[in-house]
């Protein structure tokens, strides 16, 4: 049941407990209890809105920054990643396999702001031996949601 609740919520987090109960053929109280449980266990971390910033005409710039990290005995990948995660500019942090060690997604108001953040906060870290910053030029899909306006596929409003 938890899995089915999560499947519905990941698709549309605005479904309330009554609607979830209806969709799953379950009791509303049971749903409320399970959702509450998953929230307190930290399985559900939060509910966020998928925005199209381009449509919002708000100036935002995001970059994906690849970090080369040299871990030290008392300051490993984990510590580096957690430290970087603290910054409010940082959207996501991932430990990677392959050419780079950590990927950081940073969001700012302008190229300058992001560049400054990289230079002043990331590049200077002792464990960080190299950075490669790639700015995101356009977003097409986020959280399984296409951001480009899907073309009208011609379905009529009514048909038999």
């Amino acid at each position: 049941m938890k899995k089915r609740i999560l499947a519905l919520l990941t698709e549309n987090a605005r479904l309330n407990n009554k609607e979830l109960a209806a969709a799953l053929g379950a009791d509303e109280c049971e749903i409320a209890a399970l959702v509450g449980e998953m929230e307190s266990e930290g399985i559900i971390k939060g509910y966020r809105t998928v925005l199209d910033y381009e449509k919002l005409e708000e100036d935002t710039v995001s970059a994906i920054i690849e970090l080369k990290v040299t871990p030290e005995a008392d300051y490993g990948f984990e510590d580096v990643a957690k430290h970087i995660s603290q910054f409010s500019e940082v959207e996501s942090v991932y430990l990677m396999s392959g050419a780079c060690d950590i990927i950081v997604v940073v969001k700012g108001k302008s190229f300058r702001e992001v560049a400054t953040f990289v230079a002043e906060q990331l590049a200077v870290m002792e464990a960080v031996t190299g950075t490669a910053t790639q700015f995101i030029m356009r977003r097409y899909k986020e959280f399984f949601t296409p951001l480009y306006g899907e073309e009208d596929d011609g379905r009529a409003k009514v048909s038999l």
Partner: peptide, 12 residues
């Protein structure tokens, strides 16, 4: 118009 009127799937 917000329709519940069609006889074909919305999925592509």
């Amino acid at each position: 118009v917000i329709s519940l009127g069609v006889g074909e799937p919305d999925f592509r």
